[in-house]
Lab assay of single mutants.
Amino acid sequence: GTVKVQGITIKVPNPDKAYKIAKKLAKKYNLTVTRKGNTIKVE
């Protein structure tokens, strides 16, 4: 899958794990995490 952070896309082998990490970071930096299948977008 991929993770998008402010325009940066990161390929990740485990979208579930990445999503959990993204959620933690999002809370810390007051961002929104959206997930569509293997693509995770943080904005």
Score class of each variant (00 low, 15 high):
Pro15Tyr: 09
Val5Ala: 05
Gly37Ala: 05
Lys24Ala: 13
Gly7Val: 10
Lys11Met: 12
Lys24Asp: 05
Lys4Asp: 09
Thr34Ser: 08
Lys17Gly: 04
Asn14Tyr: 08
Glu43Asn: 07
Leu31Asn: 02
Ala22Ile: 15
Val42Phe: 12
Tyr29His: 04
Ile21His: 02
Lys24Met: 13
Lys41Tyr: 15
Gly1Asp: 05
Lys27Gln: 10
Lys41Gln: 10
Val33Pro: 00
Ala26Asp: 00
Leu31His: 03
Thr2Lys: 10
Leu31Tyr: 06
Asp16Gly: 08
Lys36Leu: 11
Lys20Cys: 14
Thr9Ser: 10
Asn14Pro: 15
Glu43Tyr: 14
Lys27Met: 09
Glu43Cys: 15
Val33Asn: 00
Leu31Asp: 00
Pro13His: 11
Lys11Pro: 09
Thr9Trp: 12
Leu31Thr: 02
Leu31Lys: 04
Ile8Gly: 02
Lys24Ile: 14
Leu25Met: 06
Tyr19Pro: 00
Thr2Ile: 13
Asn30Thr: 03
Leu31Phe: 11
Val12Ile: 11
Ile40Gln: 02
Ile21Glu: 02
Gly1Val: 10
Lys41His: 13
Glu43Ser: 12
Thr39Met: 09
Asp16Arg: 09
Thr9Tyr: 11
Ala26Trp: 10
Lys4Phe: 14
Ala22Ser: 03
Ala18Asp: 00
Val42Lys: 04
Lys17Leu: 14
Gly37Ser: 04
Tyr29Ala: 02
Lys41Arg: 11
Leu31Ile: 09
Lys4His: 13
Gly37Arg: 04
Ala26Gly: 05
Thr39Val: 13
Ile21Val: 07
Leu25Asp: 00
Arg35Pro: 01
Thr32Lys: 13
Asn14Lys: 02
Ala26His: 02
Glu43Val: 12
Ala22Arg: 03
Asn30Met: 09
Asp16Cys: 14
Glu43Gln: 12
Lys11Glu: 09
Gly1Thr: 06
Lys4Ile: 15
Leu25Trp: 13
Val5Phe: 15
Lys23Tyr: 06
Val3Glu: 04
Ile10Ser: 02
Thr9Gly: 04
Lys24Leu: 14
Thr32Phe: 09
Gly1Gln: 06
Tyr19Ala: 02
Val3Phe: 06
Lys36Pro: 01
Thr39Cys: 14
Ile40Ser: 02
Lys36Glu: 13
Thr34Ile: 09
Thr9Asp: 04
Gly37Leu: 02
Val33Phe: 03
Val12Gln: 01
Ala22Gln: 00
Thr2Gly: 05
Val5Gly: 05
Ala18Ile: 12
Ile21Gly: 01
Lys20Ser: 09
Asp16Met: 12
Asp16Thr: 09
Lys28Tyr: 14
Leu25Thr: 00
Lys36Phe: 11
Ala18Met: 09
Ala26Val: 07
Val42Leu: 12
Lys36Thr: 13
Pro15Trp: 14
Ile8Gln: 03
Val3Gly: 04
Gln6Met: 15
Thr9Ala: 08
Thr34Cys: 12
Thr39Leu: 11
Pro15Leu: 15
Ala26Asn: 00
Pro13Gln: 11
Tyr29Trp: 09
Val42Glu: 01
Val42Asp: 00
Thr32Ser: 10
Val33Ile: 10
Val33Glu: 00
Asp16Val: 08
Thr32Glu: 05
Ile10Ala: 04
Lys28Asn: 05
Ala22Met: 14
Leu25Lys: 01
Lys4Trp: 14
Lys36Ala: 09
Val12Glu: 01
Thr34Ala: 05
Ala26Leu: 10
Gly37Met: 03
Ile21Pro: 00
Gly1Leu: 12
Pro13Ile: 12
Pro15Asp: 03
Ile8Trp: 09
Lys23Met: 13
Lys24Thr: 08
Ile40Thr: 01
Pro13Met: 13
Lys17Met: 11
Thr39His: 09
Lys41Cys: 15
Lys4Val: 14
